[in-house]
Design a binder for these strands. Structure first.
Length: 274
DNA sequence: CCGGAGACCTGATAGC
DNA sequence: TGCTATCAGGTCTCCG
């Protein structure tokens, strides 16, 4: 479910939890991502710690504490990180609960593709999940020149390229299709054929698409909600994703759906070109 | 190096 | 109504 705009929306709506002290920790004991369980003992050590900041890189959140460690969270497909009243009934599939001085921070994940871990300060780059990430998609440094440089040696398709978290961290399946439509580039275009002007368009389009979605509070089809429980509004603004057969918003040609690397891919066969 | 397929999980929805 | 098949915003691994 969640790509950069959704994760960033969660980060921002976690603001009320910042400054809170962790009073208790509960975990379900079930495995999440790759059958890895949230590390109960390491989380337990954070009892008494205060949450100082919440950072994001790509689709990962880092809840920093004043105990020299951060809580790493990835929402997977159906993960939710929400602030609740301690008396609120617990939703099914609740896997981690951090009791704060006021309220609770709960991680709920039906499909269990999400991840919760603890990382010592200064060891972030050594964490396997974070070590492989490229620059964040909203990083200022990610301009046309950077995209062109990253694209040059690759033989893959543009769709796979923008989805590759080691190249650009944060773009997922919805915004990959959206950005390529915005840049007027076909998803199947080979990466190494990208021209400088096309790379500039792609870099700009990625930023534009993500910032627009962020302004709209993220895209909600069924699962995504912010930390305050609110759904996103961006689904009604999507240009191509989930719009097969509907007219292109630029040229009225029906949008096509295909499958690339096993994932649904939407594009306009007329105004997107190699 | 690259793509494809399958794995990990559950729930929603469409079709019969 | 109830069954089955298909699909889903993410990653990871194996295979050719």
């Amino acid at each position: 479910m969640p790509e950069l705009p959704e994760v960033e929306t969660v980060r921002r709506t976690l603001a009320p939890a910042v400054g809170g002290r962790i009073a208790s920790v509960w975990t379900s004991g079930m495995g999440l991502h790759m059958a890895r369980r949230p590390p109960r003992a390491k989380l337990q050590k954070l009892v008494g710690a205060r949450i100082t900041t919440v950072r994001r890189h790509g689709k990962y959140l880092l809840l920093d504490t004043d105990h020299a460690a951060s809580i790493l969270v990835h929402l997977g497909m159906t993960g939710r990180l929400r602030i609740h009243g301690a008396a609120d009934p617990r939703a099914p599939h609740t896997h981690v609960v951090l009791g704060l001085d006021r309220g609770e921070l709960r991680f709920v994940d039906a499909r269990r593709f999400g991840q919760v871990d603890v990382v010592a300060h200064g060891k972030e780059r050594a964490h396997p999940a974070l070590a492989v990430l490229g620059p964040d998609a909203l990083d200022e440094a990610l301009d046309g020149a950077a995209v062109l440089a990253a694209a040059r040696d690759k033989r893959t398709t543009l769709k796979a390229f923008v989805l590759d978290q080691s190249v650009i961290a944060g773009v997922g399946n919805i915004y990959a299709s959206e950005a390529l439509w915005r840049a007027k580039l076909l998803p199947t275009t080979r990466t190494h054929t990208l021209t400088a002007p096309a790379a500039r368009r792609l870099a700009g389009a990625i930023r534009e698409v993500l910032e627009r979605a962020l302004t709209n509070g993220g895209t909600t089809f069924s699962d995504f909600v912010a930390a305050d429980g609110k759904a996103g509004e961006n689904a009604e603004y999507l240009w191509v994703y989930d719009r097969a057969g509907q007219p292109c918003k630029r040229c009225r040609t029906p949008i096509e759906r295909t499958v690339l690397q096993g994932r649904a891919t939407y594009y306009c066969p007329t105004c997107q070109i190699p």
